[in-house]
C-alpha cells in the first residue's frame, strides 16, 4: 500500500521538477500559451466558429464587419470560420507527419547505430540518399504522383523529414551503446531488442521530442506551401488552401485583404510558438545533461 504512494510521488516529483525548470523560461511559457490557444481552437472549432466555413453566408469579398469580423471570400464564406477550422488540418498534418518522421527516423537511427557494420552502412547510405534529394522538387513530384489528399501530404512530409531524425538518433545511439549501463544490462542477460527498447529508446526520446517540435513547424509550413501551390487537398480547408484560393482570386487587391492576411498570421503565430517551445526545451534539457556528467 505504502509502496504505491511512494511510487506515485516520485514520478510526480520528476514532472514537477521539469515543469519548474520549464516555467522559468518566459519564451517557453508564451509559446506554450499560444499552442494551447491553437489546440483549443482546433478541438472546439464547431462551437467557436460563427458560421459553417463552407457555407455562403454573405456577399463576395465583404470587408470586415460586425457579422464577419474578418470579412468573406469570393464565394461569400466567412473567413474567421475558415481560419478556425483550418487550425484542425494544419495541426493534424503537422503532428502526424512529425510523429511518423520521428518513428521512422528513430527506428532506423537506433538499429543503424546499435548494430553497426553492414546494417549501418546500408541504412546510412539510404538515409544519405534521402538527405541529398532536393526537398521541394521531390515533394512536388511525389505529391503530383500520389495525388491530392492530406494523408499523402503527411506521408510526403514524413518521407523528407525522417533522415535528419535518423542521423541524430544514430549518433546518440553510438555513444549510448558504449555506456556502462548498456554493458551492465547485457551482462544481466538482456537481448539486443530489450536493450534498444529499455535503455536506448528512453535516452534518445528527449532529443527526438525536441527535434519533433521543429519538424511539426516545418510540416505545418510545408503543408501550407504545398496547398498554396495547388497540390493540397482542395476539399479540406487549411490555411494553405485558403492562401491558394485567396491568391488565385487576387484577394490582396480586393475589398477584403484579410482573406490572405489572416491565414498568414495564423501560420506565423504557430511557427513562432513552436520555435519558442523548442528554445525553452533546449534550455531545460541541456543543464540536466550537464548535471549528469558530473
Amino acid at each position: 500500500m505504502e509502496a504505491v504512494s511512494v511510487k506515485r510521488y516520485r514520478r510526480f516529483e520528476r514532472v514537477i521538477e521539469f515543469w519548474r525548470a520549464y516555467s522559468r523560461t518566459r519564451l517557453g511559457l508564451i509559446g506554450l500559451g499560444i499552442l494551447l490557444f491553437y489546440t483549443l481552437m482546433a478541438i472546439f472549432a464547431p462551437w467557436i466558429a460563427p458560421y459553417d466555413p463552407k457555407a455562403r453566408v454573405g456577399g463576395s469579398f465583404e470587408p470586415p464587419s460586425a457579422e464577419h469580423p474578418l470579412g468573406t471570400d469570393e464565394m461569400g464564406r466567412d473567413i474567421l470560420s475558415q481560419v478556425i477550422y483550418g487550425t484542425r488540418v494544419s495541426l493534424l498534418v503537422g503532428v502526424l507527419a512529425a510523429l511518423l518522421a520521428a518513428a521512422i527516423g528513430s527506428a532506423v537511427g537506433m538499429v543503424s547505430g546499435y548494430f553497426g557494420g553492414l546494417v549501418d552502412d546500408l541504412l546510412m547510405r539510404i538515409t544519405d540518399l534521402f538527405l541529398v534529394i532536393p526537398g521541394l522538387p521531390f515533394i512536388i513530384v511525389l505529391s503530383v504522383v500520389l495525388g491530392p489528399s492530406i494523408w499523402n501530404i503527411i506521408l510526403v512530409i514524413a518521407i523528407i523529414s525522417w533522415p535528419s531524425v535518423a542521423r541524430l538518433v544514430r549518433s546518440e545511439t553510438l555513444s549510448l551503446k558504449e555506456r556502462l549501463f548498456v554493458q551492465a544490462s547485457r551482462v544481466s542477460g538482456a537481448t539486443d531488442l530489450y536493450i534498444i527498447v529499455h535503455h536506448i529508446l528512453p535516452n534518445v526520446l528527449p532529443i527526438v521530442a525536441a527535434s519533433m517540435v521543429l519538424t511539426i513547424t516545418s510540416a505545418i509550413i510545408l503543408e501550407a506551401g504545398l496547398s498554396f501551390l495547388g497540390l493540397g487537398d482542395p476539399t479540406k480547408i487549411s490555411w494553405g488552401t485558403m492562401l491558394y484560393f485567396a491568391d488565385r482570386q487576387g484577394a490582396l487587391l480586393s475589398d477584403n485583404p484579410y482573406y490572405i492576411i489572416a491565414p498568414g498570421i495564423a501560420l506565423i503565430g504557430i511557427g513562432l510558438a513552436f520555435v519558442f517551445v523548442s528554445y525553452a526545451l533546449d534550455e531545460v534539457v541541456n543543464p540536466r545533461l550537464r548535471e549528469r556528467e558530473r
Binding site: R179, Q183, A184, S185, S188, P202
Partner: peptide, 26 residues
C-alpha cells in the same frame, strides 16, 4: 559483473526497482 563507475553503470532514467528487477525480467 559489478562495474567500476557507479555513476555510469546505472541508467539515469530508470528507478532502482527497474534496475534491480532487470535480470529477473530478461
Amino acid at each position: 559483473m559489478i562495474f567500476q563507475d557507479p555513476y555510469e553503470s546505472l541508467n539515469p532514467r530508470q528507478r532502482v526497482l527497474d534496475i534491480v528487477a532487470e535480470p529477473l525480467i530478461v
